[in-house]
């Protein structure tokens, strides 16, 4: 059934027919092949961190973009993941793959704790409550400096891997896997329910769906993803400090997601992979680095209000007015239903 011919036709009709899919494929291939072209530790560091932050940003996108639970304190999950990983690694000497998973599980528990007040709150009120959690955790960290390292954080954590290339590949593989799984969830029937909760929670409840369960699940899942990112970060930088819980960290993830394209899952990945290296690139003009970056961000918001990913997709593809399938913008008629979709001016 899965003959070569079938595979070729599938590629031609389903995969290569849409530029956005080709871009994604090229991006993934590019990431995998990057170390073959450069061994520069600096470049590998930038892309490794971008992979970690992409997971973090996607976790926020899932919670806020898909389920509509706006969190202004998402650094909480990232920080908890990082701290738990660090403590487990240093105190119990557990291997990093285990500490990262266990750290993420602790972040899931945190997700549950944050999720409960979220059941009764919405919009800005929920945002303010979530904003308080990282501040509370920072207080707890300073309260037990012997255990948490206090202001200095916990350092001396084991490296993610012995070489920079290995660390890079771990981050890339984890990122691709987690993002794919999250994307699959959002396009599944559960994803539709999550989406519907954001649009009209009362209607979803009236349909007999237990929205409490779904909202708590969303918080846990988002916490898990952010926890994994935090764990990877802690092992990569070999430190987990209170800076991870800074308000800046929480807002950074929102900026990446909104500029990349909210409620898409791949949008935050685009946001991180464009903006994070761009900020690094700006080091060539250190005096104007932040100023230039801010101007670029403002221009992006102005010209691409739906986010970079959505803007590029809308430029390269168009939707069929009849069957709603997407087609490359050069096509005049839909590849599925052959309806007229473009008029040349």
């Amino acid at each position: 059934m899965f003959s070569f011919k079938w595979g070729f036709r599938f590629m031609q009709k389903e995969f290569l027919s849409l530029p956005s899919r080709i871009i994604i494929a090229l991006f993934v291939i590019g990431l995998i092949l990057l170390p073959l072209f450069t061994q520069d530790p600096y470049i590998l560091r930038i892309f490794t961190l971008a992979c970690i932050f992409a997971i973090f940003a996607a976790s926020w996108d899932f919670l806020a973009g898909y389920v509509g639970q706006i969190s202004f304190g998402h650094a909480l999950f990232f920080g908890i993941g990082a701290y738990s990983t660090a403590i487990l690694n240093l105190r119990l000497d557990l291997p990093h793959w285990m500490t990262i998973v266990l750290g993420a599980v602790v972040a899931v528990v945190a997700g549950l704790l944050v999720g409960f007040p979220a059941l009764r709150l919405k919009g800005p009120y929920l945002g303010l409550v979530t904003l308080a959690f990282p501040v509370m955790l920072t207080g707890i960290i300073f309260l037990f400096p012997d255990f948490t390292g206090g202001e200095l954080g916990i350092s001396g954590i084991a490296r993610l891997a012995s070489t920079r290339q290995q660390e890079y590949y771990i981050a890339v593989i984890v990122m691709i896997t987690l993002i794919t799984v999250l994307w699959k969830i959002t396009v599944s029937k559960y994803g539709i329910i999550f989406h519907a909760i954001r649009e009209d929670e009362i209607a979803v409840r009236a349909s007999g769906i237990n929205t409490v369960r779904y909202k708590l699940t969303a918080f846990c899942l988002s916490g898990f993803y952010a926890g994994v990112a935090g764990g990877l970060y802690a092992h990569y930088l070999r430190i987990a400090g209170p800076g991870l819980l800074d308000i800046l960290m929480s807002f950074q993830v929102i900026i990446w997601t909104i500029l990349g394209g909210i409620a898409t899952i791949y949008g935050p990945v685009v946001g991180v992979f464009v903006l994070y290296p761009l900020l690094e690139y700006m080091r060539v003009v250190p005096q104007y680095r932040m100023l230039l970056f801010t101007i670029i961000v403002l221009l992006l918001v102005h010209f691409m209000p739906e986010g970079i990913a959505n803007w590029v997709r809308d430029m390269l593809e168009k939707e069929c007015p009849r069957c709603k399938e997407r087609n490359v913008f050069t096509r005049r008629e839909c590849r599925y239903c052959y309806a007229q979709i473009a008029t040349k001016k």
Binding site: Y42, R45, I46, L49, Y233, L237, G243, L244, E280
Partner: peptide, 10 residues
Amino acid sequence: VDDAVSAVER
């Protein structure tokens, strides 16, 4: 912090 580390690496 990560910005600082990247600066040194660079």
